[in-house]
């Protein structure tokens, strides 16, 4: 049998290296470094720059007022922000927004997931996809869409709910809630999807084992479903909290950034940085937001790690 004899080239090659492939480490560098460098240039470097700016006095648009170059003024920006009585109203408004929207999303999303997960029919996949549509859309355009939908004169929102001509957009007493409604509308499916993923990851045999062990419906839900889905619910909570905290485009689409807009931190940050051009002040405010986000996330992640154990 010819193939079982080694061919000539093979024999000359025995033990000798005539072709040296790229070493793994070179390949690894080639694969990883471009991304890392890009991230450092576009994400990390600006971050340090803005940290520097936050301790200075600088305006990007009006060099004639504050001087052409940043002038170091220490923590003055931070103390001004934290002593501003207005800022606390903004914090509370933002917190209210986060709690209402994320809370609503968690409850509705998990409930919806239970409904969908328990049902079994052909159009299930389609229904899930249709429900997911809102979250794949551009928030600002969705905002625009709802602005039309909410319109007190011609929009259908009031009409369909039989509410009369209520102004949902330009009334400062109400427009925070109108944004909350849209946020819930957009992101409930996200919580739902994660919950479904969690529910489907629970092996069926656990329920069968529980059935054999004579567990009641309630015990199964309490001892199997909830603890098994809990880590994913927490993940959903982390994501939604961060996103809701820095919400910017949705309110821009619905209400805009004007005087009647709800006093959300991200909108405020935009106004001071790019409308009144207090760049350094804006940087400080941005940093405060970043610290809050990191703090909340790490608390959640601690719980998550515990839950995963």
């Amino acid at each position: 049998m010819s193939i079982f004899k080694r061919s000539k080239e093979n024999r000359t090659r025995n033990g000798q290296v005539y072709y040296r492939p790229m070493r793994d480490i070179t390949l690894l560098r080639l694969f990883i470094f471009p991304t890392i460098i890009l991230l450092i240039v576009i994400n990390v470097f600006p971050l340090f720059w803005s940290l520097f700016l936050s301790f200075s006095r600088y305006s990007a648009k009006m060099p004639n007022i504050w001087g052409k170059n940043p002038r170091m003024i220490g923590t003055a920006n931070y103390s001004r922000i934290l002593t501003d009585p207005d800022i606390w109203i903004r914090f509370i408004t933002t917190a209210k927004y986060v709690v209402l929207s994320v809370g609503g999303e968690m409850i509705l999303g998990f409930g919806l997931a239970l409904l969908i997960f328990r049902s079994n029919f052909k159009g299930k996949g389609l229904i899930t996809t249709l429900l997911v549509l809102p979250m794949t859309m551009s928030p600002v355009i969705v905002g625009l869409m709802w602005q039309l939908f909410y319109d007190p004169n011609w929009g259908s929102f009031n009409y369909l709910l039989g509410l009369g001509r209520i102004d949902w957009v330009s009334d400062p007493a109400r427009n925070l809630y109108s944004i909350v409604i849209v946020d819930i509308w957009m992101w409930t499916p996200f919580v739902m999807l994660l919950s479904i993923a969690g529910l489907s990851a629970i092996p069926r045999y656990l329920y069968e084992a529980a059935e054999i062990d004579r567990a009641s419906w309630w015990l199964k839900f309490w001892k199997i479903t909830l603890p098994m889905v809990y880590p994913l619910l927490l993940v959903a909570l982390i994501f939604r909290t961060i996103e809701a905290f820095k919400i910017f485009d949705l309110p821009m689409g619905i209400v805009g950034r004007g005087a009647v807009a709800p006093r959300l931190l991200a909108l405020h940050l935009y106004n001071v940085s790019f409308v009144t051009w207090k760049t350094s002040y804006g940087s400080a405010l941005g940093y405060i937001m970043l610290i809050i986000i990191i703090a909340t996330t790490s608390i959640f992640i601690k719980y998550l790690k515990k839950a995963k154990q």
């Binding site: 090659r13 025995n14 072709y19 492939p21």
Partner: peptide, 15 residues
Amino acid sequence: LGNVSVNDLSPALRD
């Protein structure tokens, strides 16, 4: 392998 040390060879070259 066949009395030759292959420690420094990559899997591709060990045959």
